[in-house]
Simulated scan of single mutants.
Amino acid sequence: MSEPSFPVTGDDAADRLLLDDPLALLIGMLLDQQIPMEKAFRSPYDLAERMGGGPLDAAAIAGTDPEEMVRIFKGPPALHRFPKAFAERTQAVCAALVEQYDGRAEALWTEAADGPDLLRRLRALPGFGSDKAQIFVALLAKRLGVTPAGWEEAAGAFGDGRRLSVADVDSKEAFDRVRAWKKEQKAKAKAAAGTKA
């Protein structure tokens, strides 16, 4: 496989962290909700800076006083539109990683038996619903070359391109394409909701 590419944040250092630090990538996916995807995936870099500048550490995040973590998330600038809720969710994910995987985010996929097992492990994390877990399976495969047997089926429509997601971002053009597709889907959903009213 060629060198992994995930130009999603608009900042080379923040993009590099996502490829180098499995916990940063997982937290970025967690935060990718109700905010622009580039902001969600930039926030792990800012979180690392605010926690001393070293690599992100699941045990350190889980063990931080919850009020302090909320302050870290509030910034300014805030790491998420809902800093309190996502500070709590980030700590919950990190606590689960410490409890079940010795704090190693990558153990979610390096120790998974196959794609369905990887999906199950992700779905068990706080804040990872069906779509988010499937997108992350697709992201691991498409951006990092993590392709356990059955990953395509586990990723569902996000694996075969029927639904575009952050997993499909490998260039600025792809980023723009994914953003346009998401906007179109929102408009269709809004129109459908309007006809039902």
Rank of each mutant, 00 (worst) to 15 (best):
R121H: 10
A87E: 04
M29L: 14
L30F: 01
F41S: 06
H80R: 10
A58R: 00
P76V: 14
L97E: 04
L31T: 01
R143F: 07
G63H: 05
T110W: 09
K132G: 06
L23Y: 02
G103P: 05
E38F: 03
A13Y: 07
A138H: 07
C94S: 03
A40H: 03
T90V: 07
T147Y: 01
A133Q: 09
L31A: 03
L23C: 00
S43F: 06
P7E: 06
L31M: 00
R50A: 14
R81N: 15
G145K: 04
L23N: 02
F41N: 03
T147G: 03
L139I: 10
P36F: 14
S130D: 14
L17P: 04
R143A: 10
A58Y: 03
Y101Q: 13
L23V: 04
G103W: 02
D117R: 02
Q33P: 02
Y45W: 14
R121G: 07
A58T: 04
F82I: 07
D57C: 11
G54E: 11
D46E: 15
A60V: 09
R81S: 13
A40E: 05
Y45T: 12
E88G: 15
L19H: 10
V137H: 07
M37Q: 13
A58M: 02
K132W: 01
Q91W: 06
E38C: 08
S2W: 12
L31H: 02
A48H: 00
F82Q: 03
L30N: 05
L140K: 02
T147N: 14
T110C: 09
Q91I: 07
G28C: 07
T9F: 02
Q100W: 11
I61F: 00
R143M: 06
L23K: 00
A59P: 09
P83C: 12
A95P: 10
P83N: 13
L108Y: 03
G53N: 07
E3R: 11
A60H: 04
P36W: 07
P66M: 08
D57Q: 04
G10Q: 05
F136C: 08
S130A: 10
L30P: 03
D32L: 02
